Simulated assay, not measured.
Amino acid sequence: MDIAGTTALVTGANRGIGRRFVEQLLDRGAAKVYATARRPESIGVSDPRVTPLYLDLLDEKSVADAVTAAQDVTLLVNNAGIATGANLLTDDLDMVRQDLETHLFGTLRVIRAFAPVLASNGGGAIVNILSVLSWVATPEGSGSYSVAKAAEWNMTNGVRVELAGQKTLVQGVHLGAADTDMMAGRDTSKIDPADVARASLDGVQEGVMEVLVDAPSRFVKAALSADPAQLYSPLSGE
Rank of each mutant, 00 (worst) to 15 (best):
L169M: 08
E140A: 14
A31P: 02
M183R: 10
Y232K: 06
V110Y: 06
A226H: 13
L130M: 02
T168W: 03
Q205G: 13
V147N: 10
S144P: 08
G18V: 05
A184W: 02
T6W: 04
A184E: 14
G176K: 07
A223R: 05
T6E: 07
L118A: 08
D91M: 05
A83L: 07
V136H: 05
L76R: 05
L130I: 11
D56P: 12
L201V: 09
T68E: 14
A35R: 01
V127T: 03
T84G: 12
V73T: 10
T168G: 10
A113K: 11
D195N: 10
F105V: 13
S225I: 12
K32R: 15
S217M: 01
A70P: 12
D227E: 09
L89G: 14
Q98P: 03
Y34S: 04
L133I: 00
T11G: 13
R186F: 14
A194L: 01
N78D: 07
G5T: 12
L93V: 14
V211A: 04
L163K: 10
T107Y: 00
A199K: 13
L57V: 08
L55R: 07
D47P: 02
R198P: 01
R198H: 05
R109W: 06
V208W: 00
E140W: 14
L26F: 09
Q24Y: 00
L118C: 10
R112K: 15
V110R: 07
Y54A: 13
G18H: 10
G207T: 03
D47I: 07
R39P: 02
S189M: 02
T11S: 15
N87Q: 13
D91A: 12
A70R: 05
G143F: 09
Q230K: 13
A177L: 13
Y34G: 07
A197Y: 01
V77M: 06
A194W: 00
P234I: 09
D195L: 10
Y232R: 04
A184S: 14
L53K: 11
A223Q: 12
E238A: 15
L104Y: 15
A223H: 03
T168R: 11
V63S: 06
V208F: 00
L231D: 02
N157A: 14
A215V: 13
G106T: 11
T84Y: 05
S189G: 10
D195P: 01
A66M: 02
G185S: 11
K190E: 06
D92L: 03
S131Y: 02
S131F: 05
S200G: 04
K32D: 04
R38D: 02
N87P: 00
V73I: 09
Q24D: 14
G16K: 04
E238W: 07
S236Y: 03
